[in-house]
Amino acid sequence: MTAVDETVPEFVTYTVDEGVAWVMLNRPQYGNAQNYRLLNQLDAAFKRAVEDDGVKVIVLGGEGKHFSAGHDIGTPEKDSNFQRERVHLWWDHTNKGGAERQYVLEQDAYLGLCRRWQEIPKPTIAMVQGACIAGGLMLAWVCDLIIASEDAFFQDPVVRMGQPGVEYFAHAFELPPRVARELLLLGERMPAERAHQFGMVNRIYPRESLRAEVAKIAAEIAQRDRFGLALTKQAINFVEDLRGKRQAMDGVFHMHHLAHAHNQLMTGNLVGGLDAKAMAKANKEQAGEG
């Protein structure tokens, strides 16, 4: 397991209770936005849970008001130049230029990590409250179950940035294609109740009882045979891949980076000049909060 650097804030916390690993995103002051150090720590936490025979189920949650506001595009701790430990055999991105730099980074840190986590052999549960936006969707979608609070909402507004959705493009597998188009083209918030109607969310509970209800579900799953659970996960993943999930995701990932390169040429910015504040303002105005 990767050694802990004591100089880096604890962006992810890890506890085990009765066979359940609780992995919690811990940047509540920024809506649990995902910088690369957080993603590194999340990967280390998942690896720790997988290697612990005492852990039967993994719960992924977020501290504070929101599950995750997505990828970090503008906090003081944004770290795109961070020399991260790569999980795949891609070369270092930090000394590269042009489209290569971002492609190599996201191939490993976004698409690569999500695929790695989606293949975790132990059952995973996303415990979602508040906002689950863009990169937040990626973390929830890699989990086997999504249990949400009544006030949770799901959103991918990155078409505003000229991007065809986030890098782990599971939209049309999680939702009917016409609804996936709506999610992307309008970029509106999808309430948990509507996501539940389409099968993207398994169950909904009041926020105050969410953790207790997730603990009950995890405890029930933890009674099953470990190898049987792993094979069941592999079976469903196999069916999804037969339906073209992996191939489709590869194709859209390349479109995503064509969009990055186009934005860079046209505006000098990967995301068309929309920073975190501009995106937050647009989202709030659309939701009638601004």
Score class of each variant (00 low, 15 high):
residue 158 V to I: 15
residue 164 P to D: 06
residue 152 A to K: 05
residue 152 A to S: 10
residue 141 W to S: 06
residue 169 F to C: 12
residue 155 Q to K: 03
residue 164 P to T: 08
residue 139 L to T: 11
residue 144 D to V: 03
residue 163 Q to C: 09
residue 141 W to I: 01
residue 159 V to I: 13
residue 130 G to C: 02
residue 135 G to T: 05
residue 157 P to T: 13
residue 144 D to N: 14
residue 145 L to F: 14
residue 160 R to A: 09
residue 163 Q to H: 13
residue 156 D to M: 01
residue 134 A to Y: 10
residue 143 C to L: 02
residue 144 D to G: 09
residue 167 E to I: 14
residue 135 G to Q: 02
residue 155 Q to W: 00
residue 156 D to I: 01
residue 158 V to A: 10
residue 167 E to H: 14
residue 154 F to K: 01
residue 154 F to S: 00
residue 149 S to N: 03
residue 153 F to S: 04
residue 159 V to E: 06
residue 168 Y to A: 08
residue 171 H to N: 15
residue 130 G to S: 07
residue 135 G to R: 02
residue 141 W to F: 10
residue 140 A to D: 14
residue 161 M to K: 14
residue 164 P to Y: 05
residue 139 L to R: 09
residue 153 F to R: 01
residue 156 D to R: 04
residue 169 F to D: 09
residue 132 C to D: 00
residue 129 Q to S: 04
residue 132 C to L: 05
residue 139 L to F: 11
residue 138 M to L: 03
residue 173 F to C: 04
residue 157 P to S: 08
residue 134 A to F: 14
residue 161 M to V: 11
residue 159 V to H: 07
residue 150 E to V: 02
residue 151 D to R: 11
residue 137 L to R: 05
residue 138 M to H: 04
residue 150 E to S: 13
residue 136 G to C: 08
residue 151 D to T: 12
residue 167 E to P: 09
residue 133 I to T: 07
residue 158 V to L: 13
residue 133 I to G: 05
residue 149 S to Q: 04
residue 127 M to P: 09
residue 163 Q to L: 15
residue 160 R to L: 08
residue 152 A to Q: 05
residue 155 Q to C: 11
residue 154 F to Y: 07
residue 170 A to P: 01
residue 142 V to F: 15
residue 170 A to S: 12
residue 171 H to A: 15
residue 154 F to D: 01
residue 142 V to A: 12
residue 172 A to L: 08
residue 129 Q to R: 00
residue 147 I to N: 05
residue 140 A to S: 15
residue 133 I to A: 07
residue 140 A to W: 09
residue 155 Q to N: 08
residue 126 A to R: 05
residue 137 L to I: 12
residue 167 E to Y: 13
residue 169 F to I: 07
residue 127 M to F: 10
residue 154 F to A: 03
residue 139 L to H: 11
residue 160 R to D: 10
residue 164 P to K: 01
residue 155 Q to G: 07
residue 166 V to R: 13
residue 155 Q to Y: 06
residue 169 F to R: 10
residue 168 Y to W: 10
residue 151 D to Y: 06
residue 134 A to C: 15
residue 147 I to W: 01
residue 134 A to N: 15
residue 153 F to C: 02
residue 168 Y to I: 08
residue 163 Q to G: 08
residue 159 V to G: 02
residue 135 G to M: 06
residue 169 F to V: 11
residue 152 A to M: 07
residue 153 F to E: 00
residue 127 M to W: 13
residue 142 V to I: 15
residue 147 I to A: 06
residue 148 A to C: 15
residue 141 W to L: 06
residue 138 M to C: 07
residue 140 A to R: 11
residue 171 H to I: 09
residue 133 I to F: 07
